[in-house]
């Protein structure tokens, strides 16, 4: 057996030859950089901002009272006596109603998703981190909800609880919790098996700190991206509920409800009747494309 066999001799110079640090950019900085250079996302983000602002400042922007009815001015086309977008079947100004309707739609689009991400995300993280029986318990319960198509589930829940905006939001929240929970669970399970969780444990971190710091930090990204894509779904579902008479009650201005009541007049003033639908379409597509852009900007880790 030759003795020098396995002994490697150290190279004379062992000191660092690593390349000097180039520009160091934080994660969020690089996300911001990518977003700024994504023109499509920038444009649609601007649109989303416009939609939100116009909803917030609807009372200031509306040329007429959205609830002021007029017997002679019913179902008038675009531009009739200063009603830029015409009037509806009760003679109310369409532009004002679309602006006001945006408030309800955005609220119904964002609030349920927010609540569902918190609740579903938390359940998912717990399920994913604890594993075993806890995971089975939570995830099988979620699977029960999955058995129903989401639209049907939303209709069934708000149908059972009665109409109204709060019940509609509750129904939508319940619909969004299972998919949110699943996303969080998947992300957590992936993160849980990575070395840095064990490394954190090896530096003395307790379970709570590990979840709060290392799991949440890594799960928040996917959850946020998924949530942003759910907003447009939520807007659509909310409009659907109102259309079916299960969401907000008339005379509240709401896109889904307006679509529903105007549908009988489609042959009289087709363009006016299509307006709420167009509003829903534009809003949901804007949210969707922004969410796509966010996903692309945030997903490139490593």
């Amino acid at each position: 057996m030759s003795e020098s066999a396995v002994l490697t001799t150290p190279p004379a110079a062992m000191e660092d030859q690593a390349a000097p640090a180039t520009r160091v950019r934080g994660y969020w900085q690089s996300v911001g950089y990518r977003l700024r250079h994504d023109k499509v996302t920038c444009f649609f983000a601007f649109m989303v901002l416009l939609i939100i602002l116009s909803a917030v400042f609807a009372p200031l922007l509306s040329p007429f009272d959205p609830y002021k009815e007029s017997v002679i001015g019913r179902l008038k086309p675009f531009g009739w006596r200063n009603h830029i977008l015409g009037t509806d079947e009760l003679g109310r100004d369409m532009l004002s109603r679309i602006l006001h309707g945006g408030r309800v739609s955005l609220l119904m689009g964002i609030v349920p998703v927010l609540i569902a991400s918190c609740v579903g995300g938390m359940l998912g993280v717990v399920a994913g981190f604890m594993g075993g029986r806890v995971n089975t318990g939570i995830m099988r319960t979620m699977d029960v909800f999955y058995a129903f198509p989401s639209v049907l589930l939303a209709v069934a829940i708000s149908g059972a609880m009665g109409g109204g905006m709060v019940n509609g939001m509750l129904a939508l929240t319940l619909v969004f919790i299972p998919p949110m929970c699943r996303v969080a669970e998947t992300a957590t399970t992936q993160v849980r098996s990575l070395d840095f969780i064990e490394a954190a444990r090896a530096t003395g971190a307790g379970t709570f700190i590990i979840i709060r710091h290392h799991v949440l930090g890594n799960v928040l990204g996917p959850v946020f991206i998924y949530a942003s894509s759910l907003v447009s779904v939520s807007i659509l579902l909310a409009s659907g509920l109102s259309f079916l008479g299960l969401g907000v009650r008339p005379p509240t201005a709401d896109w889904g409800l307006m679509l529903s009541t105007l549908r009988q007049s489609i042959y009289v003033v087709p363009f006016v009747c299509a307006l709420p639908g167009v509003a829903i379409f534009i809003t949901s597509i804007c949210f969707n494309l922004v969410s796509d852009g966010l996903r692309q900007a945030m997903d490139v880790r490593m």
């Binding site: 994660y27 990575l194 070395d195 840095f196 064990e198 490394a199 954190a200 444990r201 090896a202 530096t203 003395g204 971190a205 307790g206 710091h213 290392h214 930090g217 890594n218 990204g221 880790r301 490593m302």
Partner: peptide
């Protein structure tokens, strides 16, 4: 917990995954 990372600590095999990416 006081022992881990205090008087005893550990280096892992995969430097890629042993540091939290966020």
């Amino acid at each position: 917990r006081d022992l881990r990372g205090g008087s005893v600590s550990m280096i892992f095999q995969e430097p890629m995954t042993a540091l939290d990416p966020v």
